[in-house]
Design a binder for these strands. Structure first.
Lengths: 189, 189
DNA sequence: ACCTGAACACCGTTCAAGT
DNA sequence: ACCTGAACACCGTTCAAGT
């Protein structure tokens, strides 16, 4: 839920919500991407119905989990848009998008799927889109990027890189930098 | 199962197996990536146990479903390795890998995960790896590809592109060619 | 208002019993 | 040998009943 009528939750409700998010995060950290809502309810010591009262479903829960990472990424995108050297800015934006997704599976999941549940996530998406557009516009004018790349391409391609990095055997720390380099060179005009 | 002792199945067993594969394919075609084994058993008109007798699990079933596409891709890789113009060969290989994955979700799933269940799939993977290596070696000598790309990078990057293409709203037929172009340019030395 | 947990449908997986 | 399907555990989702 988005709590449209009430900005602050009742103290106990907020505590219960935090417990559910913590339980979900613990499962994600343990490598369980399933997020079974029944199990989370049990972990958090609440009834299943309470999970559904706070989150419309698995997708909405993921969006809540990803919100912090999403905002952090947006801050980095804003910095990139203001970078005096826009080639640098573009590289920083793409790298940040990839790293944040690798650091937070929930963010990776949310960015991978176009249909988001919460209005808040929708707003974050628009904000990131606007900032990305600013980076792309400046980059295009500076002649450091192909003309046919739009903000959603950056989202999709970085989601793809995340997938490429994760689909490897674990032992390959060089992949991130190599794949970033491949993408950035490929984006040049 | 891999039927290690028997190359040909008993006629009725083969029929039952074909029915299960058809049911699974129908579900995939309908956009259901879940492949619930119970539901497939019901669709195919067999007991659940029969599904488990033929396939060790969901993963093994996926590998059986993907085998034809996989072999077709290998044929294209072989042609690429023999292409007199190795820059062409490289492009054809990457494009084939992407297109086959987009055409067959089962192949996309199998290529995305390193751990395969059936020995047959393992053999197909080795074959594709060998052919890809041949393409990369020739491309490297011809100076048309970066030196730090290994066959598994091609697998991972094309899996990533598949993901990037699919994570878009449906209405974007241009994405495939644009992303292929980005990747191929990015792979240049 | 908010929370609980029983209830139902469904899926994964196993295994004793059938042919 | 191969197949069946009941059985058990688990998860998604809803909703009447509690506080």
């Amino acid at each position: 839920m988005d709590y449209p009528f009430r900005v602050t939750l009742r103290a106990d409700s907020a505590r219960v919500r935090a417990r559910m998010l913590a339980a979900a995060r613990a499962r994600l950290a343990a490598g369980d991407m399933e997020l079974p809502l029944n199990a989370i309810a049990k972990d958090a010591g609440v009834g299943v119905g309470t999970v559904y009262r706070h989150f419309a479903g698995r997708q909405a829960l993921l969006e809540s989990l990803a919100a912090d990472s999403y905002r952090a990424l947006i801050a980095e995108a804003a910095a990139a848009a203001d970078n005096p050297d826009i080639a640098d800015g573009l590289r920083n934006l793409v790298r940040a998008a990839l790293r944040r997704q690798l650091a937070d599976p929930a963010l990776a999941a949310v960015l991978s799927t176009p249909e988001c549940q919460c209005d808040e996530t929708l707003a974050l998406g628009r904000e990131l889109g606007t900032l990305t557009m600013r980076v792309l516009d400046r980059a295009r004018k500076a002649g450091v990027i192909r003309a046919d790349i739009v903000p959603d391409d950056v989202r999709r391609l970085t989601c793809g890189l995340q997938h490429a990095v994760r689909s490897g055997g674990d032992e390959d720390g060089t992949a991130i930098d190599r794949y970033l380099d491949v993408l950035l060179r490929g984006l040049r005009p």
